[in-house]
Structures are given as C-alpha cells and as structure tokens.
Amino acid sequence: MAPVRLSALEPLLWGACAVVLAVLPFALSTFQVVQITVFLIFCLLAVSLDLSWGLAGLLSFGQAAFFGLGGYAYAILCANDETPGAALAAGIVAGGVAAGLLGYIAFYGRLSAMFLAVTTLVVTLILLQVLGSTADPSYHIGAAVLGGYNGMTNIPSLLPEPTPFFWTVGGLLFLLIVSGRLLMAAPFGRVLAAIRENERRVELLGYDARWHKLAIFALSGAIAGLAGALFASWGGFINPEVFSLAQSAQVVIWVLVGGRGSLYGAAIGAFLVQAMTQYLGSIGTAYTTLVLGALLVSFVLVMPNGLLPTFLRGLSSIGIRQR
C-alpha cells in the first residue's frame, strides 16, 4: 500500500505517451527520428537528475560526469570487442559506481549539500582535463584509444536502424518515468521526500538518511550512465566535451526550466530546451547562447518553479474560478 496514491488519470497519460512513442516514427522523416532520439536521451539524463535533486533534494553538477563516464565505458568496451549490450551495461555500472563513490564520501562524511554541488562539479572538470590530455596514442585501454580532446569515434551502435533505436530509447524513458513515479509514491520515495524537507526529523524517527541518499544518488548516476552509453551509441562518437562546464550546467537548466520534482517537468524541460537550441542553430542565428541565456533569466524571474508546476497551477486556478 503506497502512502500516496497516484491520480487515476496518470495511467491514462502513460498510455497516451506509449501510443505517441510507438507511432511517431511513422509520421516523421528519418532525420527527425534520429534528432528526436537524442532529445529523448537528454530527457533520460534530465529525469535522472530530477530523481536525486527533485525528489531527495540532492543537487549535483555531476550528472554530466556520470553521463560522460557511461559514454566512455560504452565506447571502451565496444572497442574491445564486447557486445553493445554488455557495453551498455558497463555504462550503467560506470555511472552508478562513480555516483556511489562521490555520494558515499559526501553523505557518510556528513558533508554539506554545498559540498556535494561543488565536489561533483570539480570532479567533472577534473575528468575534462584528464581525458583531454590523453591525445597521445599511448593512452589506451585495451584496444580503445582515448584520443584526447578529439575523443573516440567509430563507436558501434546498439541498433543501427534509426526507428528501432528510437523505440528502445523511448521505451527506456517511458519505463524510467513510470517506475520513477511509482517509486516516488512508494514508502521509499516518501522517505526521500521527507529527507528533502527535513533530514534531521527523518533520522529522529530511526531512519538512516545517509543510506537512503546514497541509494537514490547511485541510482540516479546509473541512469545518467545509461543515457551516456546511449548517447555514444547514437552518434558513434564521444569526447571530453561531455565533461565541460556548459554540459554540467545544461542538465540543471533543463530541470529548472521544466520544473523539478515531478519527473515529467524534467523531461519536458530537456526536450524543449534542446529543440529550441536546435531550431536557433538551424535558422543560423549567431546568438543561440544569448537567446537561451535570456530565456533562462526570464524563467528564473517569471517562473521560478519551472514550466510544468506553473502550468498546472494555472489550470487548477482556472478550475477554482469556474466553480
């Protein structure tokens, strides 16, 4: 029995999303299918952050690092003739282990929330430096040459055909959101929400908050690792850019724009911001970053809760007025 019951409408929404994901490739060009696939991969990454930040209040700038490690793990195993399936699993493990280690130090060392934010960012930037300095071919793991800032190319794809790959990514995102929502409503998820609201109170009831935080943080890292592996598979390349400051901030921005805490908001935020970036790039404006920056500032000022919560509140206030 879950302490919170999901709205009866929610499974209907899930059904609608499943149908859209299933038929969408038939309505789109191959180019669009490929393009939307990468948006969905970013949705996975955004939702992974929302699980730790939105649900448990653990803000990390390391989501891009877990993503990047997942991508590199996938590329390295593929280059060593492992199957793409095994490489994908390695990506999940890489992200999960990295997050688990950082989380263990932060939570069991009883370090502050600020420490977590700063350390995850620092580790990300260190990874950028380290992988950037592997240009010499002597830096290799088995048959995998890391390639410095040029990164690794010719990474084999999990599924070479665009449409099955789209369905795989879409299906994973669907599964993640549905199971994430169920987790949020389950007792474990409610304890995490309580930790977000007041951790001391949770401990005074006999819960080990450290363990709960570590579990969700590692899970969140593992999902980011999965997204990274899918990303490497999608483009056939990966380079240290994934560990850049811009990338680290990007994930946080997606969740901020969409609104944190619902998982849906994070996915919507990632999709819209990426779609807009893409659009601005395609009409050739030189001011893509500037426009996006202005957009963000206005978001923080006008909709500090993000798109989805603001939208839902708008809906319900209309409902009240009608009564």
Binding site: P3, P187, R196, E197, R200, L205
Partner: peptide, 18 residues
C-alpha cells in the same frame, strides 16, 4: 521540525513505517 511539503497522513505513515 516537520516536512512542510508532505501531508499529515504521510508524517504518521513514515513515522510508523520504520
């Protein structure tokens, strides 16, 4: 010290669920 974003029911449930 309570959890402002959680319901009254959830407070009691979480306390008992340990």
């Amino acid at each position: 010290s309570v959890w402002d974003g959680l319901s009254v029911y959830e407070h009691f449930f979480i306390a008992a669920h340990r």
